[in-house]
Design a protein around this nucleic acid. Structure first.
Lengths: 242, 242
DNA sequence: CTAATAGTGTCTCTCAGACAGTATTCT
DNA sequence: AGAATACTGTCTGAGAGACACTATTAG
């Protein structure tokens, strides 16, 4: 930035949150029902305007998280997803929104917070397919968030954040299958995860299902970045043009 | 976003550009000398405030590109890098800046544009090492831009954008070496690039250096996303904690 | 026993990395 | 010829994917 000879126009700044979790082996996103115009009654991502002129963006994201979804903001790591600032995306005027992505362990049904009329988990499929319509350009933001989560799963140990503090390898596999949307071979997954240094560490053992051999339990290991990465199988993509 | 019961504070929105190119086999970033306070006389990324309240962010980025650096904005693909919005990053008040990344072919020395007192290419090493100090938090933005470029080089055919419209495989290799900051084996690089489907396509032949066998010439292929990706060799990383 | 899930061993194919060797130009 | 750069062939080791096989539980 170099120059402010002239009066620069001010804009309204908002934060939006894409909070993903796993429920019944399907990827879900947290949505609220808008209590005010515009799009009153429609589903939307939790979020809102900056409260004070000096509020930090990340702080605002955490604040909205606890206000709108009653989720313990401290335990969730928020990652900046992008800026959505097209003129006309908000009928109230020029609103530029910074989107954040969070990946959450299995959480209880959120009780509606102070701000939102309602907050609940919805399967991302329903949103991406357009079956469930969202306010503003929030469907696009969800799509970007899911794609980001897919890539992040490859290179970071964030998948363990989808599980509880203790989990089986099969549960971890279900995370990858749900987010990537493809089935994986349990045997190869088992080997791969085990030999990825620092990804998971064993703790004890428990019997799970009514049948079958009990699975060993693990917790997240010390490594945040995975090397080698978990590789997502090639998409059956036709030639992509640039 | 859900609620605007109260007056939301407005902020000033700026765009900053990280424009990378290759000169003499080294990665360079375009910097301008600030003509106004604050940080008058210091080096900074090209960029500036939104001009009208309804200006699109990408449009503003393109505008600044041509105004401040006299670069043909249309030919450069801009990629959103992130938002930098810490309170206090700009002494004039609350300024939130959206950073864009562009990767440019070898370009002529830019003539100073209308806005900037001066614009010139500087090696990124000098910036990242701190030898050359930048205004605001621009050093951080450059660092993020370089890291993004490194990752992007792995998965996309953007490396060809560093070269001219026609190039040799050795020239392409120099791009990877400069951006990644490591040497690569020419023989293996040759094979790898050749068999990555749709990455580059041959055209003719030319003699280059004063000595040696002439190199075949290529142009960018139809593929924008590379599969399999070009893999960057493992860093000699110690254990990273989360 | 069977059914069901957890976990192991092993084969094959591909690919990255190392590097010897060949091709084509210059002086 | 010799030097320099472009390009090819081949070996090796690591890892992904496929899948037969063993282990441990419930009923």
């Amino acid at each position: 930035m170099t120059d402010d000879r002239w009066v620069a126009p001010a804009v309204l700044l908002a934060v939006d949150l894409v909070i993903l979790t796993l429920r019944r082996s399907r990827l879900h996103v947290l949505l609220v029902e808008r209590g005010v115009e515009p799009y009153r009654g429609a589903s939307a991502l939790p979020g809102g305007f900056l409260r004070h002129p000096e509020e930090d963006l990340t702080a605002a994201a955490h604040r909205e998280l606890s206000e709108e979804a009653n989720l313990d903001a401290e335990t969730l790591r928020l990652e900046q997803l992008g800026v959505y600032g097209e003129p006309g995306r908000d009928p109230r005027g020029r609103v530029v929104s910074v989107a954040y992505l969070a990946i959450a362990p299995r959480l209880p049904e959120p009780t509606a917070g102070t701000d939102a009329a309602d907050a609940r988990w919805q399967p991302v499929d329903r949103v991406l397919s357009g079956e469930l319509e969202l306010a503003f350009d929030h469907r696009r933001i969800v799509a970007d968030g899911v794609e980001r989560a897919r890539v992040t799963l490859e290179h970071s140990a964030i998948a363990t954040a989808f599980c509880g503090p203790i989990f089986t390898i099969t549960e971890l596999q279900e995370v990858y299958e749900a987010v990537w949307g493809i089935p994986l071979d349990p045997r190869n997954f088992y080997r791969k995860v085990q030999k990825t240094d620092g990804f998971i560490v064993p703790v004890g053992s428990a019997r799970k299902a009514a049948t079958g051999r009990p699975a060993r339990l693990f917790k997240a290991g010390p490594r945040a970045v995975l090397y080698p990465p978990m590789v997502r199988p090639a998409e059956s993509s036709s030639t992509e043009e640039q």
